[in-house]
């Protein structure tokens, strides 16, 4: 039994390795230049990925959350249960109207529901999860008692806190685009705002530089992983076929 499973896994692993190797080469061929093989790989990938997503939604959303509860709800005497189950069906019917250009307007009912729910969620999340905690964290840099409680040098904390505060404030000001028309017709921000925004530009540059380095690190890791997978496939081939 164990051997049967291994024999089955080996072909699947081998097939997976072959496909992985093939598609990796096809995509990396773009380093030479755009070519049909690269396009074939990308279009096929988009199709398979979309099909995969549709499959996941079918099995993870529609079946367990819509279809499975339907019959029990219909057979149930509980009106609440029926409403709980049938309302999503109604919403689904509305939103599927979006496929038809003539009936797409009806889909706005469901979209309005989703947008309203999303608006409430982002409001509460932004206030309770970002704004208040981030304000508090910025203020705490200058809390001597807190620094003492953490057994941290206050000057060090306050110094770093000042830089962070300056970075946060100037970055926010940088995104302030209110301007006034000048005598020569150009649009310029208020003088003090302009200076603060210039400082904020430096902080933004640093932050984007850090993100850039992180993106490069992630891409480099992906490159390493792909090269490593190719060698793993070669190793698998060698071990599988005794080369």
């Amino acid at each position: 039994m164990q051997g049967k499973v291994n024999k089955m896994n080996i072909p699947l692993d081998l097939l997976s390795g072959v496909l992985s190797f093939l598609f990796t080469i096809l995509i990396l061929s773009y380093l030479i230049g755009d070519n049909p093989l690269f396009r074939i790989a990308t279009y096929l990938f988009v199709g398979i990925a979309s099909g995969y997503v549709a499959t996941v939604i079918w099995w993870q959303v529609l079946v367990p959350r819509l279809m499975t509860p339907l019959l029990p709800a219909l057979n149930s005497d509980s009106l609440a249960l029926k409403i709980f189950v049938l309302v999503p069906w109604l919403g689904m019917a509305f939103i599927l109207m979006k496929i038809s250009p003539r009936l797409s307007g009806i889909a706005s009912l469901t979209m309005a529901f989703l947008v309203g729910a999303g608006a409430a969620v982002i409001i509460a999340g932004a206030v309770t999860g970002t704004l208040i905690p981030q304000f508090e964290a910025t203020i705490n840099f200058f809390d001597r008692d807190l620094a003492a409680a953490r057994n941290i040098d206050f000057l060090e904390v306050a110094g770093n806190g000042a830089i962070i505060l300056a970075g946060a404030v100037t970055s926010l000001v940088y995104f302030h685009f209110g301007a006034r028309p000048q005598a020569d017709g150009s649009m310029r921000r208020f003088g003090l705002i302009e200076i603060i925004a210039w400082v904020g530009r430096i902080f933004i540059g640093i932050t984007l530089g850090a993100i850039f380095a992180g993106v490069y690190a992630a891409a480099l890791t992906a490159l390493i992983e792909r090269i490593s997978s190719i060698f793993d496939f070669i190793t698998l081939l060698r071990t599988t076929f005794g080369l």
Partner: peptide
Amino acid sequence: LLLNGIILPVEAALMALLAV
């Protein structure tokens, strides 16, 4: 198999191109 053989390699390879 589809995920590990096609989706993941293609996405990762595209990500690798991003490094260049």
